[in-house]
């Protein structure tokens, strides 16, 4: 762990059974298990990435999508650098619920958090078109990518793109070595590092 240049906290939210945990498993372990039980509460996985020659450690927090877990999971939003909002292209309702999830993220996350809209299960018959997803992402200033945890399409790119965007947002991210609060020129230095991100 000695040569980690950056540590980022990423959060995955969205309706239940959209494939949040499967996305994460595909990204971290490159496995796919349709029988993976629904997440209870929150859980996380670590993954190292190399971006522009920098060693970046991602801690990705996976959350339960059920309404009854919301109060529990909301506590873990704070300090996230990036949020992935997942919907399932085979079920329109999950797409329509993106707005409430986005509101949730806006309430509990810090202002500058990078948001990415992810359309999952594109290997199956669709109910939501690519254009609709893209339009929503544009309207709400999010990154957008379509992927399939099952076929692997787009998964790696989604996480890498998000991490890159976080690193490119200086107000949001400060490398741990520079020390929070020391850099007076950066307006919000230390804002996020003050929170434990489980690393």
């Amino acid at each position: 762990m000695g040569d980690v240049d950056a540590e980022l906290k990423i959060l995955i939210i969205g309706d239940s059974n959209c494939g949040k945990s499967c996305l994460l498993m595909r990204f971290t372990d490159d496995t796919f298990d349709e029988h993976m039980g629904p997440t209870i509460g929150v859980d996380f996985k670590n993954k190292m990435l190399t971006l522009n020659g920098q060693q970046v450690k991602l801690t990705v927090w996976d959350t339960a999508g059920q309404d009854r877990f919301k109060t529990l999971t909301a506590s873990y939003y704070r300090g996230a650098h990036g949020v992935i909002l997942v919907y399932d292209v085979t079920r329109r309702a999950t797409f329509e619920h993106i707005i409430p999830w986005l509101n949730e993220a806006n309430v509990y996350c810090d202002d500058n958090v990078v948001k990415m809209l992810v359309a999952n299960k594109i290997d199956e018959p669709r109910q939501v078109s690519t254009d609709e997803g893209r339009a929503l992402a544009r309207e709400k200033n999010m990154l957008f990518i379509e992927c399939s945890a099952k076929t692997k399409v787009g998964v790696q790119q989604a996480f890498e793109e998000l991490a890159q965007q976080v690193l490119d947002t200086p107000e949001l991210y400060q490398s741990p070595s520079s020390g929070a609060g020391v850099d007076v020129s950066s307006s919000s230095s230390g804002q996020l590092n003050g929170d434990v991100c489980g690393c």
Binding site: G181, V184, S187, G190
Partner: peptide
């Protein structure tokens, strides 16, 4: 715009 969360640091 200059304040952070943490008075200890700031």
């Amino acid at each position: 715009s200059r304040l952070g969360h943490n008075l200890d640091e700031d």
